[in-house]
């Protein structure tokens, strides 16, 4: 019964957050639409990362590749395909790419997987850069993209979808299998878990929403420039948010994204250097002192109270 109640609390919280995001423009004005969009984007990206890397322990440092491929898909098909086709297509392209690289990439573990995912994202970045140069495109302008509000609403839908997906996967048999893979992959096989299939499925599933997010962000910025879209800093930020928030629970990415988005809002314009220093300090502090992130602290606090 407690599971049900905590599910209810989670979904209610999510609905309130989404409702607030939807009305932020009319309440506080355009500036906060941008902040809300940012927040929703990081939730969707970090939640999707946590779905695979958080549950299996295969730490990907190249998730920007899914985002970038989605953005590229939308940029290339702009004015050719209707957006309601192009954006999901961006997700599909990212997922198909994940499926293609999953089998070779997931043969390695630990630091090798981290480096490999980073390498793949850089490889794709420079391949597309060269392709664009060859085609004579230094950047692509997307004239007549939808309004910031329309992008925000779609992004909120993705943030909610990624959170619900994480929550459902985490409590499913499939999710239990992914966590077992993190616990001990050899034991996981031994008790009957089809380890390779689960890893490939998880990796592919975790690429779809980031692809759509990338497509939306291309519409938001109204132009596509390879180095900016495939910026590895996006991958780093995802991992940072997951570490600070906690990544084995759907609440973690939301807390992590909230923490960093609002910290950056607070400091970015007035003290940008201080922001980077604080970011580093927080990252170290969480890794050393609270490896389960904010969500871990929350759980501890909750347990302390129920005793």
């Amino acid at each position: 019964m407690t599971v049900l109640r905590s599910d209810l609390a989670f979904f209610a919280g999510l609905a309130i957050l989404a409702g607030f995001g939807l009305s932020v423009g009319s309440l506080f004005g355009t500036y906060w639409v941008i902040v809300a969009l940012n927040f929703a984007m990081w939730i969707a990206l970090t939640q999707s990362w946590a779905l695979f890397s958080g549950l299996t322990g295969y730490i990907s440092l190249g998730n920007v590749v899914f985002y970038g491929l989605g953005a590229y898909t939308v940029a290339v098909s702009f004015k050719v395909l209707p957006l309601w086709v192009a954006v999901p297509m961006g997700g599909l392209v990212a997922a198909v790419f994940a499926l293609m690289i999953a089998v070779p990439a997931l043969r390695v573990r630990g630091p090798y997987f981290v480096i490999l995912t980073f390498g793949i994202s850089e490889l794709v970045k420079y391949s597309i850069l060269n392709l664009e140069t060859y085609l004579g495109k230094s950047s692509r302008l997307l004239f007549g993209a939808p309004s910031a509000e329309a992008v925000l609403y779609t992004m909120i839908a993705l943030a909610v979808a990624s959170s619900v997906l994480m929550r459902l996967v985490k409590s499913s048999t499939f999710g239990r299998g992914l966590v077992a893979i993190q616990g001990d992959e050899t034991s996981a096989e031994t008790v009957g878990i089809p380890v390779t299939r689960f890893k490939v499925m998880g990796f592919t599933l975790s690429a779809f929403i980031p692809g759509m997010v990338g497509g939306l962000m291309a519409l938001r910025s109204t132009y596509f420039e390879v180095l900016q879209v495939f910026n590895p800093f996006i991958s780093f930020t995802i991992v940072t948010m997951a570490i600070i928030g906690g990544s084995n629970d759907a609440r973690g990415p939301i807390l992590g994204a909230a923490f960093l988005v609002f910290l950056s809002e607070l400091l970015w314009s007035s003290a940008p250097r201080l922001y980077m220093i604080l970011l580093g300090a927080f990252l170290i502090a969480f890794v050393l002192l609270a490896p389960s992130g904010l969500v871990g602290l929350l759980r501890k606090y909750g347990e302390g109270h129920s005793k």
Binding site: T173, G177, V179, A180, D184, A188, V191, I193
Partner: peptide, 21 residues
């Protein structure tokens, strides 16, 4: 020994029941 880390003793056995033959 190779227990599933991050799981309780009970969850370790549950996982085996959930996926086993």
């Amino acid at each position: 020994v190779r227990p599933f880390a991050r799981m309780t003793v009970r969850e370790n056995v549950e996982t085996a029941i959930l996926f086993g033959g």
